[in-house]
Design a protein around this nucleic acid. Structure first.
Length: 162
DNA sequence: TTTACGATTAACT
DNA sequence: GTTAATCGTAAAG
């Protein structure tokens, strides 16, 4: 969006039966997007400081979503460096909060469809690389559920895969 | 109305 | 490796 973008290399999954998920306790004003139409964004503020971007998926109203944890920057590198205030490309999008800052995603994008402006979510250009799974990061509950997915060997992950 | 805390990051010892 | 920053949300009173 906005002339910036990249290839998603790391995600985490959440659903309603997951103690760590915002949708676990049912719909609230904040997580309403998770129970709305699929293909929309669910954006929330974390620790009063950072934004995190999710893609609503699964059956409509099922409260399922995928957290975009990291992506490989490919478009608008200068713009992202400017917004992030760093020169290291690896630090641009290697984390949920960083990613949102680099792309300019804020709470204003909550509920926004991801297949139309200002977003543009596309299928992978080339053949998919190997994907590894592992335990999710930064959680206090449900850590045992290995729903972290990362592109094998990518150096743009928030953390190396096991 | 009040209070405790989080799907994180950056700065500091 | 440890910790402060910072505020909206949700649960309790």
């Amino acid at each position: 969006m906005d002339g910036v973008g990249g290839v998603i290399v790391e995600t985490e999954a959440y659903d309603r039966s997951d103690p760590a998920s915002h949708s676990y306790r049912g719909p609230t004003p904040r997580n309403a997007a998770m129970f709305g139409p699929v293909g929309r964004a669910y954006v929330y503020r974390i620790y009063g400081v950072h934004w995190c971007l999710n893609v609503v998926c699964g059956d409509p109203g099922s409260g399922q979503a995928v957290l975009i944890r990291a992506l490989e920057p490919t478009l608008g590198l200068d713009r992202m460096r400017e917004r992030r205030g760093v020169g290291d490309d690896r630090a641009l999008c290697s984390g949920p909060g960083k990613l949102c800052q680099a792309l300019g995603v804020t709470g204003a994008h909550d509920h926004a469809p991801l297949d139309t402006a200002p977003f543009r979510l596309e299928p992978p250009a080339g053949p998919p690389g190997d994907v590894l799974t592992g335990p999710r990061i930064g959680l206090t509950k449900g850590v045992e559920t290995p729903w972290r997915f990362g592109l094998k060997g990518s150096r743009f992950l928030s953390r190396p895969m096991r």
